[in-house]
Design a protein around this nucleic acid. Structure first.
Lengths: 357, 357
DNA sequence: CTGTTAGCGCGTTCAG
DNA sequence: CTGAACGCGCTAACAG
């Protein structure tokens, strides 16, 4: 071992220039480099030019982790969603990402798998990164999660639901500080139920998978609508815990019709189920909507192009992501909380009546 | 202004306990807390118990940013994908996420919008976070991107393509260090072309959108297959730059048939296009596959359930994400690079012959 | 097995 | 407008 002691450099940025390097190259102090790069008009034109030149020449990229430690701002936002395979949350995420990105914030995605306990674990892991804000899905959190959230000093937004309904949100702590962006799942479910009833359907069934709280609220709404119309039949509800998919929709359609061959309308809690059901109807020669009306939920891609085009409820998933991110940004930038942002944003939904009903 | 001077605390973890707090509470040094928490068997059982108790009691969450600065490991991985609305990359991302997560790594998602220049900008932004590894989509990067990548000391993996084909990868720098995980887009395109020819089809058309390099390679493969079969007709290619969608597939089917009513087979470069085409065929009363064979690509959700079930090519998108993450982890954990990992992993593809051809 | 020392690369603060 | 001192919270390196 007579070789030179090539101790691995401790730096996280092996070989990359630091602010001190740029400062030396530009003949100024590190502090001036920092200023020149972040607020160009806080330094003289000449110094600015020298710093910019040196910075470019050395390929300087400021270290966000050092910056974060010094300034107490990580420029990251924790985004917790149940799943990466459900298009609904991808759209949400896309809205968040496209809104945060131009402001320099990095989303930290956390996948909870629809479980409140897993959500708490994921949140805890994300918090270790000291995000400047947190976006969650839904309001059904563990007490531990609520505790964590309450202890935070950064803004938090809950999405895809409204605080006002079901009392889920408070978790016994009062709804005081809970900020939400979403729409009323209950009302949306009600709308589709009412629509089927108005169409004169009498033997209306329900098919639902992925029984998370939001799905349940939709079902509750649908149920209420049918009760109000005097046409609710609990026997015609087919609820399964499995994740929704086209394949599952096809399968459940058959099971539903086997149990109740006289069914004349069906609400499926997600469009992928509805598309599967539609395919299966085509296969079985069941005329839609003549013999069976079919309604979906979410207005996922392609819903307008099925044969026949699918009646469904359009949900503002991307807009929810955009608005949640906006609220967060407002709370993060403006540390004085000057303009009061709304506590609860209802982005609504739209019943898309097409040809399957 | 006679109120007490409530200077905002400089800490990034307002109110939260630090390691020093835990150390004090446990009656040990901060270093011992660090050790007790990260490698429990490197301290005595008694000390470990005291530290764990104090840590739990104070609700201590170690700061990853401080840890990152001190240890030169951020536990983050930059993941660059073209889009968040294309299911292909979502699946990739899901594979990456589910593989990184158990090891404590946080994916940092970057969306490039299919543009090499945007990709370079996004990469630069991600690098400011000092990721411990980088995952990219494709091999068509700007020279600036290649420069950045070459300057990195952390592992980099390119996905969805193979280094060997097309010579795209080297960018003039030689393929020396380029690590890829993917499959041959060309061969996959060839397979579908050959399949259509083998089925006896003679007037075969192509419909493609989202003309990124991988789509082009698929088309090249398809073209080669038709040439080999003596059935290539450039006039029957309909290429548009727009993002693929069910709606676009329906529209392009009509345009293709309007231009060439005698077409007897069609390859659509993505399943969403193919599904749209299928819907439109049903609408127009065109029997599939009798009068027109239809083939898609990717085997997206539902492809097995369309009417009739869609012939397509199954691509291992999630597996690519998993394998890319695996390679990265190997390179990140094992800093000595003891076991040599493969440079280029071909995960293959599968032709799914169903009923549309 | 445990403690001490010395930074990681920036930004805040206050002086000039 | 610019600079010097200091510290963010943690861990590497070395003693003991």
């Amino acid at each position: 071992m007579t070789t030179a002691p090539t101790r691995k450099p401790r730096s996280s940025r092996s070989g990359r220039a630091t602010m001190a390097d740029v400062a030396a190259a530009a003949g100024v102090s590190a502090m001036t480099v920092s200023r020149a790069l972040r607020r160009p008009d806080s330094v003289s034109a000449e110094v600015r030019a020298r710093v910019e030149e040196a910075s470019r020449r050395l390929g300087f990229v400021p270290s966000r982790v050092a910056s974060a430690l010094a300034s107490a701002r990580t420029m990251t936002v924790a985004v917790l969603i149940p799943s990466l395979t459900n298009a609904v949350f991808i759209d949400l995420l896309a809205g968040v990402q496209e809104t945060l990105s131009p402001h320099g914030y990095q989303p930290l995605i956390g996948v909870t798998g629809y479980g409140p306990e897993a959500e708490e674990r994921v949140l805890r892991a994300q918090l270790a990164h000291d995000p400047d804000g947190v976006i969650l899905t839904g309001l059904d959190h563990t007490p531990g999660t609520w505790d964590l959230l309450r202890s935070l000093t950064v803004p938090v937004v809950h999405t895809m639901d409204l605080t006002t309904e079901g009392g889920l949100g408070d978790g016994g702590h009062g709804d005081g500080g809970v900020r939400t962006v979403g729409f009323s799942q209950f009302d949306a479910g009600y709308a589709i139920g009412a629509h089927l009833a108005e169409r004169g359907r009498r033997r209306i069934g329900l098919i639902a998978g992925q029984l998370d709280p939001r799905t349940r609220q939709r079902c509750d709404g649908w149920r209420q609508a049918l009760r109000d119309a005097g046409r609710h039949d609990p026997d015609r509800e087919l609820l399964v815990p499995d994740a929704t998919s086209v394949a599952l929709g096809a399968e459940l359609l058959e099971r539903a019709l086997a149990a109740h061959p006289d069914t004349d309308a069906l609400f499926l809690c997600n469009d992928d189920l509805a598309q599967g059901a539609l395919f299966q109807c085509a296969r079985l020669g069941i005329p839609v909507p003549e013999r069976l009306a079919v309604a979906g939920f979410n207005d996922l891609a392609g819903a307008a192009w099925t044969v026949p085009p699918l009646t469904t409820v359009a949900t503002p998933r991307r807009a929810i992501g955009v608005e949640a991110a906006r609220l967060l940004i407002a709370g993060m930038e403006d540390r004085a909380q000057s303009r009061p942002e709304p506590r609860c944003v209802d982005l609504g939904f739209r019943l898309m009546v097409r040809e399957t009903t």
